[in-house]
Design a protein around this nucleic acid. Sequence first.
DNA 1: GGGGAACTTGAGTGTACGCTCCAGATTCAC
DNA 2: GTGAATCTGGAGCGTACACTCAAGTTCCCC
Lengths: 188, 188
Amino acid sequence: MARYRVGIETRDRILAATRDLLAEGGLEGVTLKRVTTAAGVGVGSFYNLFDSKESAVFEVVRETLDAVDPHPEAPGAGDDRLTDLVGAFVTFITDSPTVARIYLQLAGLGLTDPAIAARVLRSHRLRVDRFAAACRREDPALDDASARERAQAVLASLTGYGLTSLIDPTFDMAAHARGLLDRVGAAG
Amino acid sequence: MARYRVGIETRDRILAATRDLLAEGGLEGVTLKRVTTAAGVGVGSFYNLFDSKESAVFEVVRETLDAVDPHPEAPGAGDDRLTDLVGAFVTFITDSPTVARIYLQLAGLGLTDPAIAARVLRSHRLRVDRFAAACRREDPALDDASARERAQAVLASLTGYGLTSLIDPTFDMAAHARGLLDRVGAAG
DNA sequence: GGGGAACTTGAGTGTACGCTCCAGATTCAC
DNA sequence: GTGAATCTGGAGCGTACACTCAAGTTCCCC
């Protein structure tokens, strides 16, 4: 859609505005007027670059899901340890509250919108694979099923921790994540 | 608002319709037209019984949060064990998918709406207290702060499990909850 | 530097929303 | 049974929304 340099820049500004509004007020908080005003752009420009409001939101969602996974360059043959993956997730939540809010709202949105649900599930599965691989690397005695189970548990707990930390400011996500790793390690 | 028998019945039908729509399509899915149609009621009747659409949604939210806690009759001096509390939560999620969906969306909604956020936080705090009391009963050597910390971790994990189980149908929440209890018990 | 494609703009469109209003029906305490 | 309070339905109101359109401007390949 965007072929000229200015178009690409405008597109970026629109996506940034959408991202901010989404984090601030959820899907409801994203209106065409707000997006275009925040981006300093006319309505027509928006529709020159995006098919619909939804497609801009979807683009932000896509970027957000990508952002949860650190360096996704090596898809299958990563060499990160479980500690690193957990740490990256914690950092993601605590350091990028804007994007993290969107990410955690996605789960809720996904419960409602099938298109988003599909994307969230796909991204989730990839992350489970990655966590499971790390588990096996850490504990080679683990069979594949057990590794996946452990990975699922760790990820689900982490998600819950992230959600809780946004609900309850007194929740110390980093400390709890450390506790989680200890418990999982102790159980292995 | 409702003084006559018919009024109370209508109110119930409206709340039921609101609950269904909320679970099905989130906040976005709840429109006045849909609610009144589903409840088989005129718009005027709705506004005779509720101040606004929001107040009906809020009522459902309130009921939902109450539903998460089994028998809240004995506020401070409960005698339930941690296993029971966890079991009740799992049952709640798996057996009442409609209400559970709303409950899990609440976290996301709460991130956006301060009134809902306040209610969710209050309900969350009460639940932490309850879980913490159970932890201390199970493990009297635990000091208060540690019990609360453990309770927070268990609850946050459970929330994450619930969310994951709605995202990913292959996630076995009951089994993972059992694993969670084992791990927490082993660490105690 | 000419020209066609890409970009920009904002007034305007149709639609769906939450909500008001009111005239008539129903309930129920007395 | 009466009457005041409550309940009911739905036409209609104002508003905000996502989106269109056409006329003008900017970009950038050649």
